[in-house]
């Protein structure tokens, strides 16, 4: 606890980002109780109402309470960020480890990664969403695939440089098994930059979800998310700005928190190394 406090004092960004993010996670977990009103309830005669005591964030074009939707939507939005970071982090690390350690696989894996990177991410996402039913899983997969090569490259690059490190050479000479070397000796060296990359992936994934929603290809209206609430009100920007503004601010601050966390993490790691 004291160590955490000391760390927080030294790295303000890390602390602020972490706290903000913790707040959002709490919001997502308690959403169903906090949001109160049903996020799908369509109140007749209450369309496009400006923020008031009754509707804190106003109401949307179907007469739904924007506050309730933003609160309920925090779950889906954060889930997208988290799951994409996990998915691309895990798959990317695995591929990166294979490429970095198994020499004959290196060429194949990295060529495939090049191929994936050569197709613009937004196109992969649109194509996937239009092939599969639009749902949480589809959106996560569609966004996650794009980030796998970034992770794989990072891990492989780090591994290639670590392979030359004396302690790894020593371990090899002492007869430690391949997998043992990778997991016990090399992986820990990669973890720090990987964590930083994953925070950035999570942040950009949440934004990309909003972009997909903007194109009408995000999460179905059944599952509110900050992205699809905004997308729903996007053409009403000058009529009912609150539909975009509040989820937009919420999204921006959540992404901000994650980015801050990532930056803080990087600074902290650099400080430790330096």
């Amino acid at each position: 606890m004291t160590a955490a406090l000391a760390l927080a004092r030294r790295h303000g960004a890390l602390a602020v980002g972490g706290l903000l993010l913790a707040g959002f996670v709490l919001l997502a977990l308690c959403g169903p109780w906090l949001g109160g009103a049903d996020a799908q309830a369509m109140l007749p005669g209450q369309r496009l109402r400006a923020p008031s005591a009754l509707h804190w964030f106003g109401s949307d074009r179907l007469g739904r309470d924007v506050f309730a939707r933003v609160v309920h939507g925090s779950g889906a939005s954060l889930a997208v960020g988290l799951a994409v970071a996990l998915l691309s982090g895990l798959v990317g690390t695995l591929l990166g480890l294979l490429a970095g350690y198994v020499r004959w696989l290196d060429g194949i894996i990295m060529r495939v990664m090049d191929g994936v990177m050569a197709i613009p991410g937004i196109m992969v996402a649109i194509a996937l969403v239009s092939v599969l039913d639009a749902g949480l899983g589809t959106v996560i997969a569609a966004i996650g695939i794009n980030d796998i090569p970034r992770v794989a490259r990072l891990v492989r690059g780090a591994l290639l440089s670590l392979r030359e490190e004396p302690y790894v050479e020593a371990a090899t000479m002492l007869g430690t098994s391949g997998a043992g070397i990778v997991f016990r000796h090399m992986l820990p060296g990669v973890l720090a930059p990987l964590a930083v990359l994953c925070t950035h992936i999570a942040a950009s994934a949440m934004l990309l979800e909003a972009t997909l929603s903007f194109l009408g290809l995000g999460l179905p209206p059944d599952i509110p998310s900050w992205g699809n609430i905004m997308a729903d009100g996007r053409t009403l920007f000058r009529v009912a700005p609150w539909i975009i503004l509040f989820p937009g601010l919420t999204l921006a601050s959540a992404v901000f928190a994650i980015n801050l966390l990532g930056d803080g993490l990087q600074d902290a790691l650099e400080a430790r190394r330096g």
């Binding site: 934004l207 909003a210 903007f214 996007r234 921006a252 992404v255 901000f256 801050l260």
Partner: peptide, 17 residues
């Protein structure tokens, strides 16, 4: 630094509108 993180955090269509 803050401006930069902010630039990363706002969806571009909101900026556009």
């Amino acid at each position: 630094g803050l401006v930069c993180v902010g630039g990363f955090s706002v969806p571009s269509f909101v900026v556009g509108y």
